[in-house]
Design a protein around this nucleic acid. Structure first.
Lengths: 110, 110
DNA sequence: CGTGTAAGGAATTCTGACACG
DNA sequence: CGTGTAAGGAATTCTGACACG
């Protein structure tokens, strides 16, 4: 519940991402154009990626090798995203329920 | 035993480190000269830092504000490092001992 | 559609040095 | 000692375009 920050923090420039993934900068920018990844931008407009983005890119590269078109990859990504959001919602509901129960029995959070 | 990788992987350029820490690039380079941090280098010679380095830098900045000289900060860092190494050694010994005991009793690792 | 490449400009980073205190 | 700044060059990144298939 915090260790995620290193993984999702957008701080890596495109050159390093290219080294780490083995993809050309051209391809990396193109996948952004096709909305497969969404880097942040620095003040002067330079792209910044997270480790998470890098992993995403490697998945994308694998699928591309199998001939999957970007449009289809995007669908897959959207499904994955939706799935995770639902999981998060379920977790939140669980926690809220637990909170209500604790309140009912006069328990203190700690 | 792997989640460390995001924290210690050296992938962040000095400009971003400067933004994240609020320190000038000049100061960041100087602290390297004084051996308070040790970034890696890209092929063409650009410095690359980890999140860990960034945290280290913020500690350094705090101590500098208190007037602690870099030379003293370096000593502190070395002590910290030694302490952690000893902890690691102890852990390894524990694990080895456990392994021996398991072998003695014919237990399988799994 | 997906990717390479050459093009020109703007921003980044590097080193060594001078400044001040 | 610790940090700022100006200097000049090299490497990085950006965008829009043409190429090919």
């Amino acid at each position: 519940m915090e260790g995620e920050s290193y993984k999702t923090r957008k701080v890596i420039t495109i050159g390093i991402v290219s080294e780490l993934t083995g993809l050309s900068e051209r391809r990396i920018r193109y996948y952004e154009e096709r909305k497969l990844i969404t880097p942040e931008r620095s003040e002067k407009g330079n792209r910044k990626y997270s480790f998470s983005d890098i992993e995403q890119l490697m998945d994308i590269a694998n699928k591309r090798e199998e001939g999957v078109p970007t449009q289809e990859i995007r669908q897959d990504i959207l499904k994955e995203k939706k799935k995770k959001e639902e999981e998060n919602e379920r977790d939140i509901r669980k926690k809220m329920l637990r909170g209500q129960i604790n309140a009912q029995f006069g328990l203190r959070d700690k």
